[in-house]
């Protein structure tokens, strides 16, 4: 029965089988053996048709996905607390507007600094007046005089430094302001550098003289020696 089925099948596909058998035989390339033997001699046994799987990539895929989703949530769905100006949506400012805003900011900062300097300077002057009432007029004429409303003093934008304003003075400003020229009438008030923290409460007291101390000690030793001598003499006399 099986044989009969096979015969029937063969008859059914006879034409197909002949078609398939008529297909031309495909041979290996001419340099096939040469390539093969070269590979064997070079011990190049890497299987070309078997490419390595990138296990590393697949292993870290969930991690990459998680990180990407966290970044997405953080940057896209979170409301930012600061209302930052979007440079792409806002109109650019004109140059004159920017310059005017800068000058107002810098002038207000300058005013603050100048007020502090003036206050400190007047305090120090009052102290100095108490200490030395005589004034030397010659010092006043040596200092340079600058006009109050000079263009350079008003329009220059000066930076604000993070120093303690009560203890520091901007030397340039001090020299250019009017008070620096007119106020120290006694000639003793000296401007001091900003950032040094030097005030009039702790003036320099001079170097310690060690020689005096040595003399005093010498004197005490001499007295001691004399007394001992006297004691010896009195004992010998006895």
């Amino acid at each position: 029965m099986d044989k009969m089925n096979n015969i029937e099948e063969n008859n059914e596909f006879e034409k197909l089988q002949t078609l398939l058998k008529e297909l031309p035989k495909v041979g290996a390339p001419d340099n096939f053996e040469y390539k093969l033997m070269t590979r064997i001699h070079n011990k190049n046994f890497e299987i070309k048709s078997k490419k390595k799987k990138n296990i590393f990539f697949w292993f870290y895929t969930p991690t990459f996905a998680l990180v990407a989703s966290v970044i997405l949530i953080f940057f896209v769905f979170t409301d930012s607390d600061v209302d930052s100006e979007n440079p792409w949506n806002s109109q650019p400012k004109l140059l004159p507007e920017i310059q005017s805003s800068e000058t107002t900011v810098s002038s207000s900062a300058n005013d603050n600094i100048q007020a502090d300097v003036k206050e400190n300077f007047s305090k120090s002057l009052a102290k100095e007046k108490k200490a030395t009432p005589n004034v030397s007029a010659s010092n006043q004429s040596e200092k340079p005089s600058i006009q109050k409303n000079s263009v350079a003093a008003n329009t220059k934008a000066k930076p604000v430094y993070p120093f303690d304003k009560s203890k520091s003075v901007d030397l340039d400003k001090l020299l250019t302001t009017e008070e620096a020229v007119t106020a120290p009438s006694n000639g003793l008030a000296q401007p001091h550098l900003a950032g040094q923290g030097n005030t009039f409460e702790s003036p320099f007291s001079g170097f310690f003289i060690r020689q005096r101390e040595a003399e005093a000690r010498k004197e005490s030793l001499r007295i001691r020696e004399d007394s001992l001598k006297q004691l010896k003499e009195s004992e010998t006399n006895k």
Partner: peptide, 29 residues
């Protein structure tokens, strides 16, 4: 066996270059 194997693999895979590589790998194995 290089030619019969080449014919078999070519009819199975359908690409001559790939078939040549597969037969080479077969011989290496």
């Amino acid at each position: 066996f290089k030619d019969p194997l080449m014919n078999f693999v070519y009819r199975f895979v359908g690409d001559k270059d790939v078939s040549s590589d597969i037969v080479q790998d077969t011989m290496i194995k």
